[in-house]
Design a protein around this nucleic acid. Sequence first.
RNA 1: GCGGGUGUGGCGGAAUUGGCAGACGCACUAGACUUAGGAUCUAGCGCCGUGAGGCUUGCAGGUUCAACUCCUGUCACCCGCACCA
Length: 803
Amino acid sequence: MNNTIEIDKKWQKYWDENKTFKAYNDSKKDPFYVLVEFPYPSGAGLHVGHVRSYTAHDAIARMKRLQGYNVLFPMGWDAFGAPAEEYAIKNHIHPKEAVKKNIETFKGQMKSLGFSFDWDREFSTTDPEYYKWTQWQFLQFYKNGMAYKDTIPVNWCPKCKTVLSNEDAAGGVCERCGTEVVQKEKSQWMLRMASYAEDLLKGLDDTDFADRVKLGQINWIGKSSGVEMDVEIKGGGKFSIFTTCIETVFGITFFVIAPDGKLIKELMPRVKNKKEVEAYINETKKKSAMDRTELNKGKTGVLVEGIKAINPINHKEVPIFLGDFVLGDYGTGAVMAVPAHDQRDYEYAKVHNIPMIEVIEGGNINEKAFEKHDYLGNGCKLINSEEFSGLTVEEAKEAITKMLEDKKIARRVNNYKMRDWIFSRQRFWGEPIPMIYCEKCGWVPMNEEDLPLLLPDVAEYEPTDNGESPLAKISEWINTKCPQCGRDAKRETDTMPNWAGSSWYFLRFMDARNDKEFASMDAMKYWRKVDWYNGGMEHTARHLLYARFWVQFLYNIGLVPNKEMIYKRVSHGMVLGSDNQKMSKSKGNVINPDDIVNEFGADTLRVYEMFMGDYTQDAPWSTDSLRGCRRFLDKVIRLKDKVIDGKNFTKELEPVINKSILKVQRDLLNLGFNTAVSQLMILTNAMDEKEHITKEDYHLLLTLLNPIAPHITEELNESIGYSPICESTWPEYDEKKTIEQEKDIAVQVNGKVRATIKININDEESVLKEKALNEENVKKHIEGKEVVKIIVIQGKIVNIVVK
RNA sequence: GCGGGUGUGGCGGAAUUGGCAGACGCACUAGACUUAGGAUCUAGCGCCGUGAGGCUUGCAGGUUCAACUCCUGUCACCCGCACCA
């Protein structure tokens, strides 16, 4: 059949014209919301990797519709961001033109693959009708004290000329261009995400994310429970440290404070070796995050002369050091150092010749001890710790904490690695932050009714070296009036990060055309939440965390019905090149889905990508295997020649038919797409073995295959005179009929298969024993031996144990 | 270093509660039909062995009538996080 493309087009048109996949907000049916991450519409077009996850969820959506659900399966565009902007800089056109063109390409490709998206809900994050609400939500953050401006050392990418969030600069390297990130002091808009750390952790209990996704979130939040303890400075003043090992407090031989923290600034007047200390502080500033972690593992630092701390537990005088392994923005920016029992402290002490005090038995002061790293939790006992000596680590932890708490010099606290969200970008192509700076009133939010604050049309989009957005050059845009006092004022020129628009788009899909609210509470209450959300593993730390934070905030101010609006999160594996490497232009191993669709048809590509392997694992591309899937579809087409009239299933096919219904519907909901296809092949083969099959047999096969291969199945189904599958229902299976009456089972002697016997499912145990013992080969193997026992598992196996 | 994951034929991969390991497909081999075959059909296809049979799920043990599956130890590879106190 070489009119595959025509068939594809015919049914795509049919679905479009009949609005087959429209989701209704006023339906009496049960809702089911399937979401695939909306793509960034790049110039490269759709990737075969997109096809994998979209087909998988398209199949789920299609089956769920046939099963009577009101399915919401939307698609849109996450179109703010650097690539469109870079394209615009190069070609001197407005990024929105590039975005428009790319969206057209993507959409055309998606339609050619027959994805059952409800296109009536389509939008782009760059639409003013959409980003109006992103800006509006920012104002809610601001008005609730959740957005603030702060001057902090931030990650700065010298190439992209913009600030990056901690998440974007993971590993000390710019996420986008790979350039080493440097630290720069800048005034930035921040969202108080750190204050949601505990809620984001707890909220995971109300979700059904895949384990690896949950772990990704937990790791990123990075909770650690410990004690914050006040330390007096000799001659007045004090500071606090954070530790998770308070039981080692008698082993303190020095303290280390962060060179980039506030504490050293406060102490500076009392420091005797100011020059040395200042030099070290400056040195640290110059170091990028990279230097400070990867390259420079050695423990640099300097003694702070003239200042001594007092160990609160035994009042011993202890020196204070500066060391860049202590971070200014984590914990209190100061640590107690117990070199006898901590790897880092040990290394530092060695470099700076600081004595060590052993306080836990068995925690030898040598490098080997740290390899074991196991004094915790194995009942080791304290020594050299006054009245606490002899207690186990666990007991001492509690007892010392209690004692310090009672004396009011320590508190139990939790610390989190996750920081506040740096929300400013010095780029053109993002949502303008709707804030105005007035000399008299300070930062003032725009009036909500003046939103959206549109991006202006300008000629140049280049970011500037001084760290200002290109918007800063457009004076007619910047200059405005203060909404509060009416005086001359200036707009914020920074824009929002790429993650803003994607933090709430799934809510907008629930009510995409609402021009009064970002989404109505009624619509959100009807859909409840995203039942099933698919996206790449690379987004589990950032996007998912941002989105959950955003939603939790909206929930707390009463704007969404649930604290978690995403229930299940699954992740697909990558489609690799046939050389088992990540697809890339430079490697020349890229497969363009358009080429495949044009040569083999959309259904072949869909079936292949479902069949290629475990959905959650990476899988290499194989054009040979793809051809095999085309052959499978050809076989389904040829099967039509065997169809004769008949309203019932062929009797002998009933077991495999019922089994297939069960397996396909179960597998589609358990990410078992490859085994669902395999079962459909088995069913096809079983039908193919028959001289004739009934129309009903054939219709059943086509219905089960329809979610994965929707075009060809509709065409064949129509050709035997049935009404469209997309308007009919999913078949029911009969549990009883899935069981075969007769089957072959194995007979083992001492666990080794020696024969197979034909049995009836109702055969008694004694009958099975008799049948087994009558087999020639079985007789041979038990001859002259004593039969100890015979294990019979009904309908499965017989095992004869002999001695 | 910490955390997680994965190891099954030539390849992609199957295997509810332990119950015939290798489903399904690819590649390959032989044959049929053919002017032709990248079509279709038939048969074969884990390894060793002519055979009976033996061996086989990274490796080594253990539990069991029975282990890819459970337990202990171990190796290899991959992916996150990483001076977070």
